Simulated scan of single mutants.
Amino acid sequence: MTRRALLRGLGGTGAAALLAGCGVPPAYVEPDDRAGRDLSAGERVLAFANWPLYIDTDEDDEARRPTLEAFTRRTGISVRYTEEINDNDEFFGKISPSLMNHQETGRDLVVISDWMAARFVRLGWVQEMDRSRQPHVARHLDPLLRAPAFDRGRLHSVPWQSGITGIAYNRRKLGREIRSTRDLWADDLRGRVTLLSGLDESFALLMQGNGVDVTRWTADDFHALCEQIEGLVRRKHIRRFTGNDYIKDLSTGDVLACQAYSGDVIQLQADNPDIAFVVPEEGAELWAESLLIPNLAAHKTNAEQLIDYYYEPEVAAELAAWVNYVCPVPAAQAVLADSGDEDRAALAEDPLIFPDAAMRRRLAIARDIGPEERTEFARRWNAIVGL
């Protein structure tokens, strides 16, 4: 099972959307009210909430996490690591009452998808990090990930892992190459294409296929896309909308091409070399799931230290070798290439972990959906998914 094979966010239609756009009293926290008393100097502990299957584990004992253990040996900071995040909206609902009421969440560090991180940043629910304590982040963070629209300069967030939403297809069964998003609409793929059901997961790649600059897309771009997809659904060109069950459809051959996540395809290719992944010529979406320090976290300095630790190229390489997503630390590529291990050297050459220059030129981080747009856009998109 891959990390993304677990249930993910519902496109912002749950508790998060309700708070963002349905008349809930203002929950914004002013900058001066975000920091709590930092107990890091006297309490060498840290509470870290993450998704399942998103960190390296020992092959003989899955309860052990080697990079975390090495961090504790080096720093003396014990990490209480919990795999409690299975869905962005669900986790939002779990901790939002504390954040909107100016209370501690009991967590010093969390990992959430950037479209949800955008909401946390807008609401003032996360603290700005002290980059003077994070020299490795400052030096090694991938330039492509440094300036998302929702967090200029990445002052409040740091990517844990990154990935690409592109197109996966069965090269042998299709009998041709796919190079463009427009290729999905060819007659020979009628009824054999799936798209992702989540609004935040799906819209950017499809807009890019229409030539839209997704760093500054507009409402008109969105509605034009919806009209296009509605027509394709009514003509039964699109087989269905999926979560991560596209993996099964593609593996069995029921689907020949689909929207897909780069990390999933690496796993699929291990069993079926006919599965290909393409970043279309019009571009694909680069996304991240990022580390954030919630307001009033009791161990902020410890959290900043752990974040910086994972940006050391040697540590980033260990994590990349295990999770197989796009590594946000390009310098880790040389570590894997020079490891003397054949399998790790092969990972260093995989463009789905370390995109090459040609691929990088076609990647973009999409502007997130703002709170004033979300209710309307989610309603329209979900109506299409339900057709």
Rank of each mutant, 00 (worst) to 15 (best):
V137A: 07
I164D: 00
L250K: 05
D338W: 09
S202L: 00
Y28C: 09
H102T: 02
V111D: 03
D350S: 09
I77R: 06
E177L: 11
R4C: 13
S96N: 08
H156F: 02
M359A: 03
V323K: 05
A260H: 04
R37N: 10
P159N: 04
L184P: 00
H140D: 11
L19P: 00
E372S: 11
L174G: 06
W322V: 02
T82L: 15
E376Q: 12
T194C: 15
E342T: 15
F377V: 05
N382T: 14
Y310L: 10
L306Q: 04
A378Q: 01
V24I: 05
C22N: 02
G386V: 07
P135R: 13
I307W: 07
R119K: 15
F203I: 13
R360I: 01
Q134F: 00
L319D: 06
G12C: 11
G166A: 04
R362F: 00
L189T: 06
N170M: 04
L10N: 08
V121M: 10
L206F: 02
L189W: 00
I384V: 15
R190V: 05
L144S: 02
E349G: 09
G211D: 03
P31A: 13
S197M: 14
E90R: 10
P25R: 14
A219C: 10
Q228K: 09
T181N: 03
D61Q: 09
S180Q: 00
A288V: 00
Y246N: 01
E90N: 06
P313G: 01
Y310P: 10
R146Y: 09
E62C: 13
P280W: 00
D188P: 02
E69F: 09
F203C: 05
A117T: 13
S197Q: 15
Q259K: 07
S197F: 07
A288M: 05
Q305Y: 04
R374W: 02
L387H: 06
T72R: 11
P273I: 15
D32R: 15
L184S: 03
T242F: 12
F48D: 11
E90T: 07
A334Y: 07
R64H: 12
V265M: 03
F241G: 00
C327T: 00
N272L: 03
D89P: 01
A357R: 14
R8V: 10
I369W: 00
L6V: 11
Q127M: 09
F354P: 04
R239Q: 14
Q305T: 14
G106E: 15
E285P: 02
A320T: 11
H140P: 03
E289D: 12
R152W: 09
I293R: 01
D33H: 09
K94A: 14
E83G: 07
T75D: 06
